[in-house]
Simulated assay, not measured.
Amino acid sequence: MKKISDLLPRTSRKRILSQSLFFGAIATVSVISNAFSLSSKAYGQTLPPIVNNTEINSYAQAVLAMEPARQNAFEEIKKLIGNGEIPKIVCNDSNSINGLPRKAQDIAVDYCSRSQKIVQDNGLSIAQFNKITIELQNNDILKQQVYNTLLRLQKSPDSP
Rank of each mutant, 00 (worst) to 15 (best):
S5H: 11
D6E: 03
D6I: 08
L7A: 08
P9Q: 13
P9H: 15
K14Q: 04
I16P: 10
I16Q: 01
L17A: 02
L17K: 00
Q19S: 05
S20G: 06
A25D: 04
A25T: 09
A27Q: 07
A27F: 07
A27E: 02
T28R: 04
T28A: 05
V29E: 11
S30H: 04
V31I: 14
A35R: 13
F36P: 01
S39L: 14
S40I: 11
K41H: 11
A42C: 08
A42K: 06
Y43L: 11
T46H: 15
P48R: 15
T54G: 10
A60V: 04
Q61Y: 03
A62P: 00
L64F: 01
A65R: 08
A65T: 04
E67K: 15
E67D: 12
P68H: 09
A69R: 03
A69W: 04
Q71A: 10
Q71K: 10
K78C: 04
K78D: 06
K79G: 09
I81C: 05
G82W: 05
G82P: 12
N83T: 10
G84E: 05
I86P: 03
I86D: 02
I86K: 00
K88Q: 09
I89A: 03
V90W: 07
V90A: 08
V90Y: 05
D93C: 05
D93G: 04
S94P: 13
I97K: 01
N98P: 15
P101F: 05
A104H: 06
Q105A: 14
I107E: 01
A108M: 09
Y111I: 05
S115L: 10
Q116A: 13
G123H: 11
L124M: 09
L124F: 02
A127Y: 06
A127D: 00
F129A: 12
K131V: 07
K131I: 07
I132K: 08
I134G: 10
I134P: 10
N139P: 08
D140N: 12
I141H: 04
I141R: 12
K143P: 06
Q144K: 15
Y147D: 14
L150V: 03
L151G: 12
R152E: 13
K155Y: 12
K155Q: 14
P157T: 02
P160D: 09
